[in-house]
């Protein structure tokens, strides 16, 4: 019953993603060798980097779905956009909490105005604006369209923000003691990282589809309550 209403692929992908992510968790803690220069703390990469990929991938989906929604007015695109934005803010939060934990040990400080850090923090606030507009709109219909505008304007600006924070960083050399990816990373590290990408992507896609399915039912129920 649940599967027919919220879709079949969402739960399947989510379960597959959780399984792979649990396996990757085991790899990270018991299998992958410790990085020579940074030590234990480097293991944060295996959750941090895939989460960052998912955070930006999610915003890409939000932007594309928003464009489709404004263009064709298809409600399914809006369900997808909300679901992707919700997942996006979760994974952006993961990036923003795991990053400083790594930075405290590797750089000696929780926060620096490093380009990628700054960009991710701004991305988080764009997501926040997306949800605030949605919730503060006078009608759900206006909320959907205004949120789509925020999503598109954000996506258009992200390359510019990216460029400007990198440019800004070039004025401020950073206390980097270790290069993120050594050229001679052992294959175990690469494999663990790649598995992380796969697991988190599947996990995100599955939960996103599930969330979109729930949103679709909510939407239909609301339509029904307005005009039975």
């Amino acid at each position: 019953m649940t599967t027919t209403r919220t879709g079949f692929w969402g739960p399947l992908l989510a379960v597959a993603g959780v399984g792979l992510a649990l396996f990757q968790l085991w790899l990270v803690w018991f299998w992958v060798p410790t990085e020579a220069v940074q030590g234990i703390i480097q293991r944060i990469y295996y959750i941090h980097v895939p989460s960052a990929w998912v955070a930006f991938f999610a915003f890409g989906i939000v932007a594309l779905a928003s464009i489709v929604y404004l263009w064709l007015g298809d409600d399914r695109a809006d369900h997808l956009a909300v679901a992707a934005a919700e997942g996006g803010i979760i994974f952006t939060t993961i990036v923003l909490t795991t990053g400083p934990l790594w930075g405290k040990v590797a750089w000696g400080t929780y926060w620096t105005w490093e380009a990628r850090l700054t960009l991710t923090l701004l991305l988080w606030f764009i997501y926040l604006g997306y949800f605030m507009v949605r919730n503060a709109a006078p009608t759900p219909e206006k909320g959907r369209r205004w949120a789509a505008v925020v999503g598109i304007a954000g996506a258009v600006n992200i390359p510019l923000i990216h460029m400007s924070v990198y440019w800004f960083r070039s004025l401020h050399p950073l206390p980097v003691v270790a290069k993120p990816e050594g050229p001679t990373a052992p294959p175990e590290m690469v494999q663990t990282l790649l598995l992380g990408f796969l697991a988190f992507t599947l996990l995100f896609l599955g939960l996103m589809m599930l969330r979109a399915g729930v949103h679709r039912i909510e939407h239909r129920l609301r339509l029904r309550e307005v005009a039975p």
Binding site: L122, F125, L128, V150, A153, N157, L160, I161, S164
Partner: peptide, 10 residues
Amino acid sequence: PVLLFPLLTP
């Protein structure tokens, strides 16, 4: 400001 400031960064 919540909507505008992140986009004003550049």
